[in-house]
Design a protein around this nucleic acid. Sequence first.
DNA 1: AGCCTGACTCAAA
DNA 2: CTTTGAGCCAGGC
Length: 105
Amino acid sequence: MERKRGFDVRVYEAVRRIPRGRVLTYGQVARRLGSPRAARAVGWALRRLPERLGRSVPWHRVVGSGGRLSTRAGPGVEIQRRLLLAEGIRFRAGSVDLTRHGAHS
DNA sequence: AGCCTGACTCAAA
DNA sequence: CTTTGAGCCAGGC
């Protein structure tokens, strides 16, 4: 049975499956959840990501369309950029090079 | 049920 | 390339 917060949990589980060195856009995550248009809701779920899960959920591997980092993430953006660079993610004009790290599905 | 918010996205200017 | 506006979704009140 699905609960009210089922969506949030699904988002975390989906993000948890993103392999190192690979990134997905909010829209792609939404697509994997069966709601292609729920990109916004995905961002909302990640924003409320509990610190406790921060260690097991690679939230930094989720970026905006075109590989751009979400500016709304606040100070966390720099941390995200650092984490991505640390796992070999390449950037192209300030955005993640999706042609190299983006998912095809 | 109605209204508001937001780590989104796409198209247009 | 940057800025707007509209569409979409789930959650909280």
